[in-house]
Amino acid sequence: MSKVPNMPKSWREETKPHKFCPGCGHGLILKALGEAIDELGIQDRVVFGCDIGCSLLSWDFFNVDAVQTHHGRTTPVMTGIKRARPDRICIAYMGDGGGYAIGSGHLVNAAARNEKLTVILANNCNYGMTGGQMAPTSLPHMKTETTPYGRDPEVTGYPTQGPEMVAAITRESAYVARGTVANVRQLKNYIKKALQNQIDGTGFSFVEALSGCPTNWSTNAKDTWAFIEKGMTEYFKVGEIKDPAKKEA
């Protein structure tokens, strides 16, 4: 008999192995999320929404009700559900293109309205699903399919600092953090606190996760991790930015 590896209880075994590329960060983020759901005991109450981006591959990932929305539109779809069914725990899962480019207006306004919603965003510095174009988070001088000579910040701006932006427009009751797939235990704790913020009805919660896209970065395992741990953290500081539990966080 083949042995099934240990996986979070809320994962759906029938859809494993998952469909992400080998070495992709999405799987690790969803592992942290699965464990957070398990530890909080909320599997029966979660409604999961995923964007169009590689996050769409998670539509049947968990044993929870889930909906695939449109590119950039997960935040409003989940907002609609939460407003109609406040007893549900609504999780919006998206990429950096979905959250910071096409869906940025939704993110800004959901945060400003302090929606009792949890947004989890995978930052992999590019558009994964469409084949590696520049994302708002692409690093300066980074070569992508639409910046073949390197991203010139004078022309296309500097990487979007998502959690910092969300923190700036939310009140003290919001939870905002940036984790990384390089530290899954910490990421899980951030996600747990974000979900708890929603469960308690405290306010909006947002976790960005630094993530890898070896396929479009064209990196081997070593370089993928080096990029996540060193390249990305030069611009994206890992840690909690806003925590209602700690007034001065």
Partner: peptide
């Protein structure tokens, strides 16, 4: 432009050639 399949390579070629 904005990325979307199956149009992406119009931009990919344009960004390589146009400069």
């Amino acid at each position: 432009g904005y990325p979307i399949t199956p149009q992406n390579e119009v931009m990919h070629y344009w960004t390589r050639l146009s400069p």
